[in-house]
């Protein structure tokens, strides 16, 4: 009993700590990556290669004046960034990030490296909670009592709802092939057969595009289009409340990349896995997971600094007329392939 509580608490602390560290590293990667792509140097003064830049940024944001505009709806104005950060933080607990099945700690089996292994509804929990992220954005936009933030919030909520459909349909293809809602089953199924991005390449493309929209990243960052909306739904926020939105964006990016890896790229599994067992397997699988995760996080940065922003009608057309039919097609293909026993 106590051993399992300790194990779960340790997993929770490790995951939360890694995500927060990941946010800091991603901020550095984003700034240096942008500089690299635009052929300039980027922040390189603080620490080796400018690695301490995120710490300095965090200190700067902490000590900035925290302005609360006069006519905002106080309660909701404070609630919105909390919802954003909370939703971004709790979604990671159903994602398996390593193989620990044959490892025991204090005599208790570790079980898969996943914070909530007993949650039978797995991915459904993740989809349900990430659907709540839209409240943070809508409320921030509305409670700020500013037309720019209201427009940003409304745009972004319409965008999230539209792309959620294609995203869920793409996930459905994977679940159909696996026959389970649990993400550790998804991973072990891929380890036993073939990584999902090969038979379901269309689904992978649809899902990746949709999560770019879901995380409000370029080319779909309509909510914070600087050139037309000043900054979108968080225009009235300053200091740590602004940082909360920034952090939730990066945390969502990490969860989204982890989902791409888990659903389509075999999660923590890697070729030649059969030769390892016990602790070496655990370490190797975590390294494999983090390596794949890092690639997709870099993809987020890469795309951001390579593609221009979509116009709003283009975004809606892509979502409803492009991705939704493609996702349906993928689902039909998986169904047919399953019926013909090709998969």
């Amino acid at each position: 009993m106590w051993a399992s509580v300790v194990v779960t608490a340790t997993k929770l602390v490790v995951v939360a700590g890694s995500i927060l560290t990941g946010v800091a590293i991603m901020e550095w990667v984003e700034r240096r990556g942008a500089a690299f792509i635009q052929d300039r140097l980027g922040p390189n003064r603080v620490g080796p290669l400018g690695l301490f830049q995120p710490i300095v940024d965090a200190i700067k944001l902490l000590f900035k004046e925290d302005v609360t505009p006069t006519n905002v709806n106080k309660g909701l104005y404070y609630l919105a960034p909390m919802i954003s950060v909370f939703v971004a933080m709790v979604t990671f607990i159903v994602i398996p990030f390593g193989a620990g099945n044959d490892v025991t700690i204090f005599g208790a089996p570790l079980g898969g490296l996943i914070v909530a292994p007993d949650l039978g509804v797995g991915i459904l929990y993740l989809l349900a909670l990430s659907a709540l992220g839209v409240y943070g954005i809508v409320l921030a936009g509305w409670s700020s009592n500013n037309k720019y933030s209201l427009l940003g919030g409304l745009r972004s909520s319409a965008q999230l709802i539209s792309y959620e459909l294609s995203m869920t349909l793409a996930v459905l293809g994977v679940l159909l092939a696996t026959g389970s809602l649990r993400l550790d089953d998804v991973v072990s199924h891929q380890a036993a057969h073939v990584w999902n991005f090969i038979p379901q390449f269309v689904g992978f493309i649809v899902f990746t595009t949709a999560v770019f929209a879901e995380t409000n990243r370029l080319p779909f960052d309509l909510a914070e289009a600087e050139t037309e909306l000043v900054a979108g739904y968080h225009v009235e926020y300053s200091s740590m409340k602004f940082a909360a939105f920034l952090m939730s964006e990066y945390m969502n990016m990490i969860t989204a990349s982890a989902l791409i890896v888990t659903l389509f790229f075999g999660g923590w599994s890697f070729p030649g896995m059969g030769r390892f067992s016990g602790w070496p397997l655990l370490i190797a699988s975590v390294v494999a997971f983090v390596a794949k995760l890092a690639f997709f996080l870099w993809l987020f940065v890469w795309v951001r600094w390579s593609l221009p922003r979509f116009r709003y009608d283009q975004l809606m057309r892509l979502g409803w007329k492009g991705l939704l039919p493609l996702a349906t097609l993928n689902l039909v293909w998986v169904g047919v392939a399953m019926a013909m026993r090709w998969l």
Binding site: L124, A128, A131, L132, V134, V138, L150, G153, L154, A158
Partner: peptide, 26 residues
Amino acid sequence: AEFLAAAQILIYAGAILVLFLFVVML
């Protein structure tokens, strides 16, 4: 009813009440 619990959050909180909020703001 685990499945219904997740479906309840997904459908009601994630979709239906967002629609309400949308109309209130609209």
